[in-house]
Computed example of a mutant assay.
Amino acid sequence: MDFSLSDEQRMLADTLDRLMADRVSPEQRRTMLEAPAGARSPLWQTFAELGLLHMPFTEEVGGLGGDGTDLMIIMQALGRGLVPEPYLAGLVLPGELLARLGDAEQRERWLTPLLEGEHQLALAWQENDARYDAHGISTTARRDGDGWRLDGHKQLVFNAASALAMLVTARLDDGRLGLFVVPADTTGLSRHDYRTIDDQLASDLTLDAIALTNDACLGLDAAQALDATQALGRAALCAEAVGAMEVACQQTLDYLKERRQFGTPLSAFQSLQHRMVDMHLHLEQARSMAILATTSLALADNERDYRIAAAKAYCGEAARFIAEQAIQLHGGMGMTEECYVSHYAKRLVMFDHYLGDVDHHLEYVSDHLLNVA
């Protein structure tokens, strides 16, 4: 198969690489991380001006009709730049659900300004007892007059502190999975913010007798749309991890070439050469699996989820391996904030836990193979 990029896709990749080099230096990234939650980001506005916010969505909902390869190019560039902007959590995941489930009025209210960069959203699906099972949740949604009442807790909601509204999954009385738009200022919604190990801002939410109007309901049977959206998110994460792994490998190799011991560059030692080869083998295999995930998005649900689970499992293992090797080959300084490879390492470790870790996806792959045997 031909996996080469088109001329337009190469131009997109080159534009993104230049943008990351100009706008996301280590110092600029630190400034972004220290900005108050909800502050209007100049880089996010640049994304909007370049059409990057419209790219992953179909023309029917106001997007540019980009495919999985276009999203892969964007996510790889964001991974290489270690960009802290919530492109996946604040745009792709909630936007995809709005595109799939929202009616014309709901898309006009929430999706159109999202694509224009006027606000951001967040997806609240994960719960403590359910772990990575998006369907085994305990948050409930019950009819309350002409509207709805939501009760429950959500965990590890990325970008909630900057979101104008959260898309919240809840179990209905008949057992189906509903999806609701909960504005950030809704009475009864409380939020506990914290930083994850890779400096991302996440939140735990408590929904205490939240009252919503009927038009806040995006869907009363959202399970299939949520599965498809999470599959898209996992494919995007694999691409982002490949970008971060590329830089971690390159920075480690550069360090081994510069650092000298007994008058000899560390890169001349054969044992260290072997470890660098192992890092690059994991990188290239992860790249192949990321391409597999991207090209599987249009398949039937079961085959799509199986392939993307296999890709996420391998990319998670490769990300952790490269992170550990990068730290070890840098020595003690690799653990310091001043050594930039440590930030890539933390991001790669966190990647494994977002939208399902290695163990979760290996179990899914194993169950799939047993069922088809």
Rank of each mutant, 00 (worst) to 15 (best):
G147N: 11
W148T: 09
W148F: 10
R149G: 00
R149M: 12
R149E: 14
R149S: 13
L150T: 11
L150N: 11
D151I: 03
G152W: 13
H153Y: 11
H153G: 00
F158Q: 09
F158G: 08
F158S: 15
N159D: 07
N159L: 02
N159W: 08
N159R: 02
N159F: 05
A160D: 12
A160I: 04
A161C: 04
A161M: 06
S162Q: 02
L164G: 04
A165G: 11
L167Y: 02
L167C: 06
V168L: 11
V168I: 15
A170L: 02
A170D: 04
R171F: 03
R171D: 03
L172S: 06
L172Y: 10
D173K: 02
D173P: 00
D173L: 03
L179R: 02
L179M: 13
L179E: 05
F180E: 02
V181I: 08
V181S: 01
V182Q: 10
P183F: 13
A184S: 14
D185P: 01
T186Q: 15
T187D: 15
G188M: 04
G188H: 08
G188C: 04
G188S: 02
S190A: 12
R191C: 08
D193Y: 00
Y194C: 01
R195Y: 02
T196H: 04
I197Q: 12
I197F: 06
D198S: 10
Q200I: 00
L201E: 08
A202K: 01
A202H: 10
S203V: 01
S203A: 14
D204S: 04
D204K: 02
D204W: 03
L205I: 09
L207F: 10
L207V: 07
A209T: 13
A209S: 15
I210M: 12
I210L: 15
L212C: 06
L212M: 06
T213M: 02
D215Q: 11
A216V: 00
A216Y: 03
C217V: 12
C217R: 14
C217H: 10
L218P: 11
L218V: 12
L218F: 15
G219T: 06
G219H: 09
G219E: 07
L220D: 14
L220R: 08
A222M: 05
A223V: 05
A223K: 06
Q224G: 03
Q224P: 00
A225G: 12
A225V: 08
A225Y: 10
D227S: 08
D227A: 13
D227F: 03
D227M: 00
T229I: 01
Q230D: 00
Q230V: 09
A231I: 02
L232Q: 07
A235Y: 09
A235P: 04
A239E: 02
A239H: 06
E240Q: 15
A241S: 14
A241T: 09
A241I: 03
G243W: 10
M245K: 03
M245Q: 14
M245H: 07
E246K: 08
E246S: 05
A248F: 09
C249D: 07
C249T: 09
C249W: 11
Q250K: 12
Q250C: 01
Q251N: 05
Q251T: 07
T252R: 09
D254S: 11
Y255A: 11
K257V: 07
K257W: 10
K257G: 11
E258D: 14
E258P: 00
E258Q: 09
E258Y: 10
R260K: 15
Q261W: 11
Q261P: 00
F262H: 14
T264W: 11
